[in-house]
Simulated assay, not measured.
Amino acid sequence: MSMSAANKTAIALEAVIFDWAGTLVDFGSLAPTQIFVDAFKSFDINITLQQARGPMGLSKWQHIRTLLDDADIAAQWQRCTGRAPTDQDVDAIYARFMPMQIAKVGQYSQPIDGAAQMLAWLRGRGLKVGSCSGYPREVLDVLLPLAARDGIAPDHVVAGDELAAGGRPGPYMALANVLALKIGDVAGCIKVDDTVPGIEEGVRAGMWSVGVSLSGNEVGYTHRELVGLEPAKVSALKAQAEQKLRAAGAHYVIDSVADLPGVVAQIEARLKVGERP
């Protein structure tokens, strides 16, 4: 804390702002990662799922730009085309990626266990529910009605391609939720995300930032795959994910959003004694 709690005025918790893939839906954040692999493969460029996960949380155009800036991937591009990748190449991959993502996102729209109940619990406490995503609006237009049928329907949604200021790790999408939901103080908000850029987004917006480990991109396993692992392996994956999320500034890290109520109670207690993020 930059100032002592005694010098601060207590405020109330007002809202929780969520990421989508790996946080509310799509355990393991598989939809975007596999499509990145497939999109690059259509240009004869081979990337791994691990490489595809690296920039997760960024807008999808910026995600592709970051992948093409990777030394190994750039070298592949140079060998295939005889030149370094340009922004026009990013546009071309993005144009290939988008219809593939739109076609496939519905297959990964299942809510994470406990997410719908957790959202109902938040609303029962009078809290507003915001959300934002690295997904462009065209993809969210497919995902949102499917998720709503399963009880995942935030009060506001910001897409990764619709703010002129840009996306993560900047604070802009989180702050757009603050404006739309009419939040009185950013310190009365919690940002929940499974990626490093998403945690940085919440920190830069002045919010409490909560990382999600086991259900998210940093672990990157389906629920079925996790259940099949030895407990020691699961613990190691969880610890590694938690370290990355805390290094990005997460105030708390939970296994999945089903565990959020306990953190909400802790943050509310800290706000009551005048603490801020």
Rank of each mutant, 00 (worst) to 15 (best):
L127E: 00
V129C: 12
L127C: 06
D150G: 12
D194F: 03
M118K: 10
G167F: 06
A148W: 00
T195C: 11
L144N: 11
K128F: 10
V192H: 08
K191D: 00
P197N: 08
E200Q: 09
K104L: 09
Q101F: 03
G114K: 07
G184Q: 03
V178W: 01
A165P: 10
P111E: 03
V186H: 05
W121S: 04
G167E: 07
K191P: 06
G106M: 03
Q101R: 05
R149E: 13
L119H: 05
V178Q: 11
V192Q: 05
L140S: 05
V129M: 11
G134Y: 01
R137G: 06
D113T: 15
G166P: 13
L122C: 04
G188L: 01
G170H: 05
L181D: 06
V158F: 07
R168W: 01
A103R: 05
V158S: 02
A187K: 04
D161H: 00
R125E: 15
R123A: 14
V192P: 01
A187F: 08
G126P: 06
P145T: 14
E162S: 05
R168P: 08
P169M: 08
R125I: 14
G198I: 13
G126I: 08
R149K: 14
G202H: 10
A174G: 00
E138W: 04
D194V: 10
H156T: 09
G184Y: 02
K182D: 14
I190M: 02
D113Q: 15
P197W: 09
N177F: 01
S109A: 10
A164N: 11
L122Q: 00
V203G: 10
D113K: 15
M100F: 03
D185R: 14
V186W: 07
D150T: 12
A147D: 08
L144C: 14
Q110S: 09
R123T: 10
V196D: 06
G202F: 05
G198A: 12
E138G: 03
A187M: 07
E201Y: 11
C189N: 00
P154S: 02
L163T: 02
